[in-house]
Design a protein around this nucleic acid. Sequence first.
DNA 1: GCCGTTTTCGGCCCGACTGTTTTCAGTCG
Length: 574
Amino acid sequence: MARLNAEIADKFNRLADLLEIEGANPFRVRAYRNAARTVGSMSRSMADLIAEGRDLSELPDIGDDLAEKIETIVRTGRLPLLEEVEQRTPAALSDLMKIGGLGPKRVQTLHRELGIASAEDLRRAADQGRIRGLEGFGPKLEQTILSRLAGTPGSKGKRHRLIDAEAVAEPLVAYLRETKGLKDIVVAGSYRRRRETVGDLDILVTARKGTPVMDRLAAYDQVSEVISQGTTRSTVILRSGMQVDLRVVPQVAYGAALHYFTGSKAHNIAVRKLAVDRGLKLNEYGVFRGDKRVGGRSEKEVFGSVDLPYIEPELRENNGEFEAGAKGRLPRLITLDRIRGDLHCHTTATDGRDTLEDIVEAARERGYEYVSINDHSRRVAVAHGLDTKRLLAQIRAIDRLNERLDDIVVLKSVEVDILDDGALDLPDDVLKELDFTVCAVHYRFNLSRRKQTERILRAMDNPHFNILAHPSGRLIGRREPYEVDMERIMKRAAECGCFLELNAQPDRLDMDDSACKMARDMGVKVAISTDAHRTGDLDLMRFGIGQARRGWLEPDDVINTRPLKELKRLLKRH
DNA sequence: GCCGTTTTCGGCCCGACTGTTTTCAGTCG
């Protein structure tokens, strides 16, 4: 969320890369990476925590030293140790580590022996055949480096939207499922944890010995390159650019392997530590006491072996799930079947592709109890936003439609713009005709943090304000969130009975997981909505649910799990 | 560099695959 936190995390990660290339203590390197992860995943800005006088060394993986370094970065924007290291070791070397096959040791050799300090230096040296003679290198690796440099830049580390990952994974799984001798097949990794973006697909298979599943993967017509192929693990790149890791384990190891390959890495490390504390060893083949297998057939057994209840995949980020599990306080996460309606849909009246009747019919087909229509307001001219007259006409059309329907209720609403000064884009006397409003910032994203916050708070002062749409304004991979004090907004929302939207569009997924968690902690309820612009978009709800689960939300935290009567009561402001 | 009913030192998760070796280091997840 906070851009400052991302900057701090980036500095620590870059420092970790350079120290690793220099051959520093690997645990010290890891300490910087762990700290980067902690800071990067915090919903509160480090600057705010410092301003409140919080002791940063209380944060996990942050000790006295790193707390001081964070304070220095917040105060000066600089990390002196990083600058010092960059004097000795070119910063661009950390980029070379992103090339497959090159890690810290080889990058160090390249720098030391050939003075290579950039991707361009590396390409030239490889072209001239000067790489193959280096210790630890050979002709094959030289060739690999050349082809990686020529290919898609930085494909190691590129992330895909979850919806794109689904489009790749589903046909591939169906194809692999046809393999003779195959039993279970599941996509694990961040895909199973429902992260908003996925780096690669981790597919886990259980099968009889000698199953030809590895050969079948290599023969898949979408494979563009086989990176490695063994008996238990293979890696390929698909034409879509997606990397796929396929792993085969025996049935008896299914739970241990599924847990291991689901991650996250930080979660796994923590579970293994718990196992070591109990004199056990945990790996992808099971839970062992000495050489004796004592569990691992199911994930429940794995957790049970370290005295934990089952932890849902979406929670496995080493971000409080162990403490909650030990105390029996894990959330009972929301599920898709608890959703009773969609509270943000567009029609052909503005920028939707389908008509009012189409959207309502699609909602009815999905078994919803209610659906709301939320077309844009006049300010969004490109979408032909509604003025008072056209909104009143839509209200009357919905009234007429409701008279004909007996198994679904259409709620009258709008996605009204929040103007620069915090006023809403339509007059109160038309807003009061609606069942509720969804309010959104669609322009002037670059206001200062203070002004953007004031703008939204002022909008919330309007008694017709109910739900803040896509609260951060971000577009994943394309547009950063605008600067805003989310904590103040949530505090006000809790006070005045307003809600925040979790927009389920795969490009938005806004709120993000940490914002959901913050809302839950602050007692702000959330509407999970698809922002549908066509009937098929109603199915995007599953992405919103995934994000909500990552944010620890339970059915009670979400307003559109409520029956209509209760929902209407909630939408009356106090 | 962090962390602690194995507390202020001495640990720090674990295994597969590749290309280079001639028994294994480096990389990766």
